[in-house]
Nucleic acid binder design. Structure first.
Lengths: 291, 291
DNA sequence: GCAAATTTGTTCGTATGTATT
DNA sequence: CAATACATACGAACAAATTTG
């Protein structure tokens, strides 16, 4: 009772991909060729390809063929505060310089400003009633002309009426909103809390990030709530990052300057699935529940 | 030319799930029933179900039927340092108490200790040659009897020969390794750096976490490098967390004590995919590239 | 404990549509 | 326009897992 045929075909192709026999970007034999070489029906071959597709190893292009996927050069966002500027990390103002520091070219759209009534999460995080008006500022961000993240910040409308009128202008706030709010209203960012989750992309995200519509690539979602000196939240920033091109770093305490990713983890070529990996080794004679 | 039939069926089922008409845990009509009610072939119905499966909305159980998935209560790991203890965050010693603080029951296996030669990532992060011996201590961790994470820590063998002999004992170090290394060798943890990625689970992880073998649920992988007062790395901890049951929090600067998740983000019921969500709204009249 | 019924899983064959070259 | 290659759809049969009688 061996494994089903489509699995055996998939595993064989997997082996050939991981061994380097088929390199990233190269084309696999056509479905009809595979049908012959494995002596299976075309549908079975397609089942094998689907198995590889959901694992992100290959992609199909109608009219062209099936290809080994090429990895995207990931961008690393540091979520903890910059020891220099004191605060920040992956946010609007700092974004452009952070990306440029890696020798890549950042782009960000002009903020799209909207006025909403605070809904569930926004109201809860900003600690305002659900009826309250909030300002949202939304930006799409790219690196080397590839979409890398979507960011939306929410501010209580209160801040605008108290004088921070630039918040409702559809233009960049060059100095950064932290600096701007400090200067105009005396609101200082004393700290922030990030809440990170992973979920499937929605329709908009799939379209903007050009993700395969098979729901394979997940997105990070980071909810950042910024607090002032009194511990009062004054901003909620929601940023969405496709997981196939983004990584995160958090520095706590005294950490030596990064040696610019000597050998980036995560990468290191394709992972040999099945062997004991760095983290794995969950018991070679596994399957025993717990001790 | 509307959307393909299997997609229309899938979207209809999606709507019925999101509307609450079919609640989490409930059973969908059988494939044969769906075949009749939609007037499609069984294969087409199965294509629709596959589409929902890869998006994590339903699951099939051979011999039983197709069910709307139930969400798992996520555990939130705080990666930043505890302001009290100074350091830590999701690590061995602190793990049990962190979980208990949420009213849930933690379990951790006895560490499995192994001696390896430092390989790629481990050697690079610990800044030792590839030939050097390192000690690894591996634990499986559960919450309420459900597997939640896998953790492996690597230490240069050096530390053992200098006197930290407990590192090669297959037993818990009650006080925590940070405290132990400080007491025996005077090595103080001055800080640490976390590098977070998301990837597909390997075979071991799929088995241990009981993930669907369709590669849908991704895992977080956190590489934590701990540094001593001289900025020298003395430990690398790799922790793997299934993304369907884990979230992360990072506190930077002064952040008020959390109001114990007033309304947890991430959740809020099922996401209405397609509508403008909190983060989304990437242009209702979207598809225009960039301004 | 076994047999039958139910339900999903695998595999084949075939035909036609759509995208790209 | 033609050829190529993947996408969708139908029908059919048997296998495997689970529940039920």
């Amino acid at each position: 009772m061996p494994e089903p045929l489509y699995r055996r075909i998939a595993e064989d192709l997997l082996r050939r991909i991981e061994s380097g026999e088929m390199s990233p970007g190269s084309q696999l034999p056509t479905e009809l060729d595979l049908r012959e070489s494995y002596g299976a029906s075309r549908n079975t071959v397609r089942d094998a390809l689907k198995w590889l597709i959901t694992r992100g190893l290959v992609e199909t292009r109608p009219g062209q063929g099936t290809f080994v996927v090429e990895e995207i050069d990931p961008f690393i966002t540091t979520l903890s505060a910059d020891p220099e500027t004191g605060l920040g990390g992956g946010e609007g103002a700092a974004y452009l310089s952070e990306v440029r520091a890696t020798g890549r070219e950042p782009e960000a759209t002009v903020p799209r400003v909207e006025i909403h009534q605070a809904s569930g999460v926004v109201a809860a995080e900003l600690r305002v009633d659900e009826a309250t008006s909030v300002v949202s500022r939304h930006q799409r961000r790219l690196i080397d002309h590839t979409p890398y993240s979507l960011q939306t910040s929410f501010y209580p409308m209160d801040l605008v009426t108290r004088g921070a009128t630039k918040l409702i202008e559809a233009a960049d706030i060059e100095e950064g909103t932290v600096s701007y709010l400090s200067r105009t209203l005396g609101i200082k960012q004393a700290g922030y809390r990030d809440m990170i989750t992973v979920r499937a992309p929605d329709r908009n995200e799939t379209a903007f990030f050009k993700l395969p519509d098979n729901g394979r690539v997940a997105v990070f979602e980071n909810f950042r709530t910024a607090f002032d000196q009194q511990g009062k939240p004054f901003r909620l920033t929601v940023t969405v990052y496709p997981a196939d091109r983004n990584e995160f770093v958090i520095n706590v305490g005294d950490v030596p300057a990064r040696a610019l990713r000597p050998g980036r983890p995560g990468a290191g070529g394709r992972r040999p699935g099945g062997q004991d990996s760095v983290s794995g080794s969950v018991g070679r004679n596994s399957r025993e529940g717990l001790a």
